[in-house]
């Protein structure tokens, strides 16, 4: 197995605020990793730092052996599109959708390589087979969809191109338990081929037993390292919820 993503000594934050402190994480091809931790402990920041959306960062982030992080203090988002085009796909917490565009426009917008753009019809079909409820909504503007449908659009958009590494931020946020369970099921059905998936999630019970390993993020530091699911950790996480 090769290392798809290697994060070393990553510190990141916004302005004077440091959120992540010396985080190291390795993602190998074919893995599904769950990052668990409480609100405000840096899960989203970790995913955002990987695509360069934090205010500043230091340390190293290597994707397929290419450095995409490094130390930078310039504003967020300047290189995000280049990083995304290397094959990373972030499905953000707030969805970052375009409220006036239709569902099919959204799915198309995810096809950023010329190849994907040409094949966008077939790819749209593939997404619809993963999320059948979207079929009827294709011509609807996204602003009128429900929370669960929006999440499907957001994830579907991330799957339109051949992204190898899928970073999914809080798939269950704001959704009814039944819907979020179904959503996670759908995520687990996605064929990774030689890619990988990282899911940040508060609710550990959603991911338990379904991902290849769980990593805890506490106060901006990774805990439990790269070990197998930690029974005690999860026990006490249950206790918290």
């Amino acid at each position: 197995m090769t290392d798809l993503l290697r994060v070393e000594n990553l510190s990141a934050g916004y302005g004077p605020l440091g959120v992540l402190h010396n985080v190291s994480l390795t993602v190998r091809a074919g893995e599904r990793i769950g990052i668990v931790g409480l609100n405000g402990h840096g899960k989203s920041t970790l995913l955002k730092a990987i695509v360069g959306l934090t205010g500043w960062q230091s340390g190293s982030i290597q994707y397929n052996g290419v450095e995409i992080g490094g130390t930078r203090s310039q504003g967020p988002g300047r290189n995000t599109h280049k990083i995304v085009r290397m094959g990373l796909s972030l499905m953000p917490q707030g969805d970052a959708l375009f409220h006036g565009l239709t569902v099919s426009d959204h799915l198309d917008s995810g096809a950023y390589t010329p190849k994907a753009w040409r094949e966008r019809k077939q790819r749209r079909e593939r997404i619809l087979s993963i999320f059948p409820p979207l079929e009827k909504l294709l011509a609807q503007p996204v602003g009128k969809l429900s929370g669960g449908e929006r999440r499907m659009v957001s994830i579907g958009r991330g799957l339109m191109d051949d992204a190898k590494l899928l970073l999914i931020d809080e798939p269950s946020l704001g959704l009814a338990p039944k819907i979020s369970k179904g959503l996670v099921e759908a995520l687990m059905q996605i064929d990774l081929r030689d890619g990988a998936m990282v899911i940040a999630e508060q609710n550990i019970s959603l991911l338990e037993g379904k991902v290849s390993r769980l990593v805890g993020l506490h106060a901006g530091k990774l805990k439990g390292g790269a070990t197998a699911p930690d029974a005690l950790l999860s026990e006490h996480m249950h206790h918290r919820h």
Binding site: G77, T80, R85, L101, D105, S109
Partner: peptide, 24 residues
């Protein structure tokens, strides 16, 4: 066109546009 879609996407949400590979 793809560029047109990118422009429309950027009108709505610049951060979301960056996430689908749109260079601002």
């Amino acid at each position: 066109s793809r560029r047109g879609l990118e422009i429309r996407a950027m009108m709505q949400n610049p951060e979301g546009a960056a996430l689908v590979g749109v260079g601002l």
